[in-house]
Structures are given as structure tokens and as C-alpha cells.
Write a protein that binds this DNA or RNA. Sequence first.
RNA 1: GGAGCGUUGGUCAAGGGGUUAAGACGCAUCCCUUUCACGGAUGAAUCACGGGUUCGAUUCCCGUACGCUCUACCA
Length: 505
Amino acid sequence: MENKNIRVRFAPSPTGGLHLGGVRTVLFNYLFAKQHQGSFIVRIEDTDQTRFVAGAEQYIFDCLQWCGLTPDESTVNGGPFAPYRQSERKAIYKQYALELIEKGYAYYAFDTPEQLEEKRKGVPNFQYNHQTRRQCTNSLTLSSEVVLQKLANNTPYVIRIKMPENETVTCHDMIRGTVDFNTGLSDDKALLKADGMPTYHLAVVVDDFLMQITHAFRGEEWLPSAPIHILLWKYLFGLDKMPKWAHLPLILKPDGNGKLSKRDGERLGFPVFAMDWTDPVTGNTTTGFKERGFLPEAFVNMLAMLGWNDGSGQEIFSLQELIEKFSIKRIHKGGAKFDYEKAKWFNHSWLQQLPVQHYVANVKPYFAKAGITITNDAYLHKVMELVKERCQLLPDFVEQSSFFFQHPEHIDTASIAGKWNATQQQFFVELIRNLELATTWDTENLEKDFKEMAAAHQLKPGELMLPFRIMLVGGKFGPHVFDIAAAIGKAATIHRIKHTLQLLQ
RNA sequence: GGAGCGUUGGUCAAGGGGUUAAGACGCAUCCCUUUCACGGAUGAAUCACGGGUUCGAUUCCCGUACGCUCUACCA
């Protein structure tokens, strides 16, 4: 692909949490731009004033930052085509709408929302289109004097596109190939609303042109309205200037069918948003992948594999690798069901391959939340190395290693009691004595001495290891038991043995 | 209802006229490990259906079914 000034954009509507699918759209935009040394732009599509949500815009940028998908131009860092917030560009759109009217491709419509509501109630499936516009109140049915008068009186109006009755519009989609539409089947979409704001249809086209967007990625849900956008391009700027389209497959709910929604996450117990989102009105918080304990590397990797792969079978990719290997030709056409188990697997893989220093800072807060104070970072590193392979999510570190920092809250004595006998009791009493005298304190010597003692008591290590483990960690889990003893130290080891011995009596 | 898009194991998916139809997640069994996990091995499980074209279709064509998306002065 000849890459002269590749420019792509992500154009979110700041109305709430940033959905998985949205992040994937960002990712594909980003990968494509970076691969071609192009620019990735974030344009805020806040043309619906009734849906304004405080904080939503900032939240989107927080999510992008967490993912490491930094925009080259945006409302945050500006750029040569500022402003990047459509509400601040309001004045721009009207002239294009008027241009359309002049050219005969659009018209004023004075029907009120209430009147249209009525029509929809009366006529099943009422559409404002080439068949019905003659029965409506607009500049096509009204005399120009009346129209002028209405405009002069500030009568609210909307500007609608006048869809051709029977033309074929072809969309050349980079993922789907050629898709044909008959213009007579689309209705006369509003382009400019009564409040003077453009609708999405006008705004995307105008801004994509003005911002010199070369490739436009968006969800498949936009495909049916592509003919409107293409027509607008043809009428306003010329098809040769139009960006190349790519309609991305949808991310589906794991069970049943349909687009994955925030509701599905709540219902099935997994995040759907990138980061925690708190609705400013209700105060309700919806968990994000970040707070749930995902690493951004894993989150991004997992998203990339939902609808794309490089054909080699490789599944773990760094962002840099994705930039190098990404290709539009290998994006799927069909939607993909989201699989939370697999998502966790990605995180587990990243936890293993990244050095723990890379994410200690991310797990510390979880310890704090659990009331465990970390005083020694070197010790924390060591412990994390010991337990990381049994962690899928960041909070798992707490669950898997709290006994390294504090006495276990509960000792599973039931698992010992069944086969407990006087010889074993005797063994541990003596073990305490030996441990107290120990001059070296490391895994190897601890294990060696333990086994020699067992032999002396004519006991098999197997009868003793599990009780010992339970004394130290509280349950049947955790790393090599002598590693644990070595790590927690002499005093704690002896104390925990004594404690359990007491419980057993 | 209409239009558009889609359909390889439970899920993500490779492949693409002739293959034992890769691989991964998950699941099961086993090995390793005197715990759990990691790792290793093995296994169950797939080309939506019907017609063509062809010596031969999972692959190409046409239908059908099913699913999804859209059908707002929301994006």
C-alpha cells in the first residue's frame, strides 16, 4: 500500500464506558496507522447534546493511555485540524448542508418529531423516504415563499438528504469486497438537526474530508448506512477523495447471539469496558479490565486476536509485533464470540513472560486493599516469582501469596487430622527443636534436614509434607514447601508449626 | 416486514478442489510434581442444509435455513 500520509481516526461518542469493541476499533486503526507511519486521530463525536455525559471524554483518553494507544492528534494534544470536538465545529457543518440543498441533494423538512411520531404510529414502519416525502412538510412540498417565511420566522427545521429513487451505490470495503446498495431503500436521513448540530451522517463525511482521513475503520453496524455517506462524498467532495472503508466484524456475546453488551458482562461476571466506569448520574460503577487485574499488554493482545490472526498460529504478540504483522486482508468477516476464559489465558501468558518488575506496581494496590503492607520490595519480587505461574489476574497474587506476609488466617486442620498420629506429633515437636538450632536457612538444607529426620523417625516424607504445608500456608496450595519456609524465615516457620500443633490437640 | 452482512469442533481459528481438516482456549485422562500451579502426553469434539459444476467438493456456483446488524432530529 502506497503510504503517503495515511490518516485514520477513531470517532467515539462520549456517552459512557469504553466498550471492548471500541478499543479493538482503536487498535486496528492504530496498528494500521503505525505500520504505515501514518497518523492516528481521535475525534470526539459529541453532536447529540441530549446524551452528554460528564467525564466520558476524559475517560476515553484514560483508557487509550492505559492501553498504550496514543493518538497523534486529538482534543487532548491538538493538531493541525483542530478543533477535534464536533460540538466546537458546529458552524462548519451547516454550510455543507446548505450546499447540498443548493445542489438539489437535500431539502428543508419542517415536520416536528411529534408529527413523525404520529406517522410512525399510524403507518407500520413509516420511513421518511422518496415515497413519503411528498406527504410531509418540507421544501419539496411547500412553495418557496412559504419555506422562506418559515425560515424567517425561525421555524425549527431539519435538513434531510434527498435519496435518489433508484440508483446503485457501491461500497468497496477492504474487508468485505464490493457491496451494492439500492438508494431507494434508504430513507431521507436527517443531516442537520433542529438545534443546528449535524447528525453523524453529515459530520463523519465533512470531518473525514476536512481532516484528510484516508482509511475509515468502523463497526459492521455502520455498513447499512454506508450508501448515505458515499452519496454525501459524491455530492460534496468527490469520490476520489473518499477514504477507503473497512467495516469490522462485531464482538458477540459468549452465549446466545448478538452484540456483546455491558449487560452481558454483568450477567456473566466479566468486564466489558476497558476501565472502571462510574456513571455520573446513578453513581453505579461498571468494572473494567484494568481494575479486574488485566495487564494492558494482554488486553490489547487478546483484542487483536478477536477477528484477526497472522496465519502462523502465533497468539502472543506485543504491540510492536502487531504493528509489524497486522494486515487488513486477514481480518475476518464474521463476528467473534467473546471468551473470557481465553482472555484470562492471555493475561496469564503475559504474566509469565513479562519480568515481575514490569507489573509489581500494579499488584501492590491489591495487597494494600487486602490489608497487607509491603515493607520490603525485594521480598515481594521474590514471592511474586515464586507464585506467578498460578496467577491469571493481578489480584490472584494476593490470594496466592498472602501467607508469605502474614500468618494464615485459617488453617485447614481437617486435612491433617484424619491421618494424624503420635509419631507425627513427635516428629514436629522435634523439628521445632532442630529448626531452632539451625544455623543455615535455605531451601536445600531445610529439605535435607527434614528428610533425614523423617527417616530417623521411620516416617515417609509423604506423610509429613502435607501437614507441614498446611501449617505454613493454611491450605493445600502454594509453591514448594521448603521454598516457603526459607522465605518466611525461622521465627515464622517455628511459630506456625507450634500454632498448628496446638490446634491439633 | 425490508435491506445488508455472515456461517470450519463448546469458543477463537488455519486451510482451501484430492489433507489423518493445523493450532489455541476450555474439558477429560495420564505423566511430572510427596499440595496447587506450570510443563509434557493422549483423547472426545468440526466443515449449517440441499442442489449443481467436477473424476473428486469443506473449498467454486445457485438456492434454503439459521444468526446478526441496520431500518431515530443516537452514534
